[in-house]
Design a protein around this nucleic acid. Structure first.
Lengths: 209, 209
DNA sequence: CCAGAAATGGAGTGGCAACTACAAAACTGT
DNA sequence: ACAGTTTTGTAGTTGCCACTCCATTTCTGG
């Protein structure tokens, strides 16, 4: 059997109703994946949670991988969407502590289940889905960028010395958040992430002019 | 059907040859799980890598879960076994940098694949296997203890102020390592973990007497 | 209002991977 | 040497779960 015409994916067009259904699926998948892990989340459960049938799921996504990629995009928007407004206003240590409180409130509201939506996805997909790893690498890069810009703003506001390396500090803060959330998830206790971020903030205080 | 006698697991006894086979299986499973992730690692591949048949695998382990628990114990011993001798000699900033170099050499030798063996297992099992989560929580606690003791030794050697909170700093360092390794794994670049640990060391330098 | 398209229902099916059955071989202690 | 035990080989089987098929209903544009 020879494929004659190019197998270009038909550019599917969705109605508003269709898009709403698609969104319901992604929402349900995001929640179940966060709660049970990427690999343990079954499509059947996602269908039930989203109140859709199997045919609907496959109407909107080619396969499970495509759904997971949509979940990555969704969680990236959710996480960055929550952090962006806070980090874009970063200009003082008070604001920085507000950011820390947001992180703690977030993990606390989940009872430490699931950890960081992006961190869990990254860890669970990095070695089995190269495309997913690339997408998550990009998500982390955006997050890091927000932190870097925020730290530079703090510097420009005279809160930090002029010679700080904002990029290095941003990577360190992101690592502290991710590692702290992993420990909090494993220990089922929000303390570690609070300690990790507080320690980074304490370090930044030593970098005041 | 009523179970009359208590279903106490028969305390199986293995010969030296049997234990060697069991070890081969755990070694192969550890490597494949690190390379492909917990859920993606197939028993069939593990059998092939360990050169054992299915019956052998089930002779030594009740099921896949039991094998994974053995892998957790194995990786805990591998990681802590590597860090223990270094952390037990922690008494200076030079020694601390030696520890950092060990971590970087380790992730580099794996080409950033798999990240931290314990971190990946924790993230992949925390929401699907409570027993595994508990075991890994304990592994992290032991690791943190080693760090805490090391920091206290540095303090006692006059390298750190007397009023430092070693426990808090140990948690922060562990979080930096874990978060750094996750970023390194995702970005396929050892730089993040180096930055994360170096930043923590820089902070400790501000805590000298 | 009516054709074509999109959305949905629901009962499949196929493949894979965890797990089992059973017998033979290799070992161990006496 | 031999009885019992441990180790191993081979060839299944079973259940789950991602994915499919086709009919039906609902929607949209002209």
């Amino acid at each position: 059997m020879v494929i004659v015409s190019a197998p270009t994916a038909v550019p599917r067009t969705f109605t508003a109703k269709g898009l709403a259904t698609r969104e319901r699926i992604v929402d349900a998948a995001s929640a179940l994946i966060l709660e049970h892990g990427v690999e343990s989340a079954k499509l059947e459960d996602i269908q039930a949670a989203a109140h859709v049938s199997a045919s609907q799921l496959y109407h909107y996504f080619d396969d499970k991988g495509a759904l997971i990629h949509a979940v990555i995009d969704h969680q990236t928007e959710t996480v960055l969407g929550a952090h962006r407004p806070v980090l874009e206003r970063l200009d003082s240590f008070d604001a920085l502590e507000g950011w820390r409180d947001m992180i703690i409130a977030s993990i606390d509201s989940q009872r430490c289940i699931g950890g960081c939506p992006l961190g869990s996805l990254a860890s669970g997909l990095a070695e089995s889905d190269p495309i997913a790893r690339g997408a998550l690498a990009d998500s982390f890069a955006q997050w890091e960028r927000l932190l870097q810009d925020g730290l530079e703003r703090m510097r420009d506001h005279g809160q930090l010395r002029a010679d700080i390396d904002a990029r290095t500090l941003a990577v360190s803060m992101l690592a502290s958040v991710q590692g702290g959330l992993l420990l909090s998830q494993t220990w089922r206790d929000a303390t570690p992430v609070r300690i990790a971020v507080d320690t980074m903030i304490a370090y930044l205080r030593t970098l005041r002019p």
